[in-house]
Design a protein around this nucleic acid. Structure first.
Lengths: 137, 137
DNA sequence: CCTTGACCTTCCAGCGGCGGGAAGCCCCAT
DNA sequence: ATGGGGCTTCCCGCCGCTGGAAGGTCAAGG
């Protein structure tokens, strides 16, 4: 084992939760810098790379788009960043989520209402299909 | 104008809200039957087609997948259908929405919390980035 | 008659964010 | 020496469209 913490893509994947394929993909689209290569052309990752991958993994877990994450990563690396911009991105994401949640809730209630009025038996009559069939708005 | 209600793809699009490209796409993937053709090879739609397209449009508006819609359409056309199956699909969709809403709400609250603790000023310190940077779980 | 421009047709490409799988190295244990 | 696991590249497919290019067709207007 080497003195420094260099590791292969598989180990990096295991330590970050980001699958090897996804790591390569992130490299390909320029989200992360091209990895160092060993003599056998294997990619090699160090602790800084691990931190970056974990950062991305967590941000993805919060549903940020890769585009947003690119911006967040730039801010993360910028020691002189203003937290204003980070907060702006976060609040935009909250607003987006609020919109989607409201929309999905409305749809959910519509379908639940229809389903409640559907007997759900062997007979063909069904308010759900009736509603979908209804004339144009 | 013809005595029957035959119309072109553009008119069908205007009357259903489904864009021409999407109608062709639905035909291509077999969601709807291949349209009749005029002598000039233009697709021709009648009132039954319009009903089908509207049905699809509404179901999409409720977030059903095209796969689900294929099933719903089959049920819609089956005079002897049991409403049970329709209800099952609807309730499955409600459950799916409930899961997604819960997930998105949790994420929303996490981000909102972090944002609330971020000054959002010119200084670099920011709990949002700190959290994303944090060590593995 | 000719042109314009709005339709229509086909096909091909791409979005986001990967995942599957092929074909081929590389390295280690047996 | 052989087997197996990992690594490399590549390209395809998923969902549900959407945009664009290149061409046919039609009605109206000059």
């Amino acid at each position: 084992m080497k003195a420094n913490g260099a590791m292969t893509i598989g180990e990096a994947a295991a330590r970050t939760g980001v699958p090897p394929k996804t790591i390569r993909f992130y490299e390909e689209i320029g989200l992360i810098a091209p990895a160092e290569r060993l003599e056998n052309r294997y990619r090699s990752y160090d602790e800084a790379d691990i931190r970056t991958l974990r950062f991305i993994h967590r941000a993805r877990g919060l549903g940020f788009s890769l585009k947003d994450i690119a911006a967040l990563l730039a801010l993360y690396r910028d020691r002189k960043r203003a937290s204003r911009e980070v907060k702006r991105l976060a609040l935009a994401r909250v607003a987006e989520l609020d919109r989607k949640i409201a929309e999905m809730t409305a749809i959910r209630n519509t379908i639940a209402d229809l389903a409640a009025r559907c007997h759900g038996n062997n007979r063909p009559d069904c308010p759900i299909l009736d509603e979908l069939e209804a004339a144009a708005p």
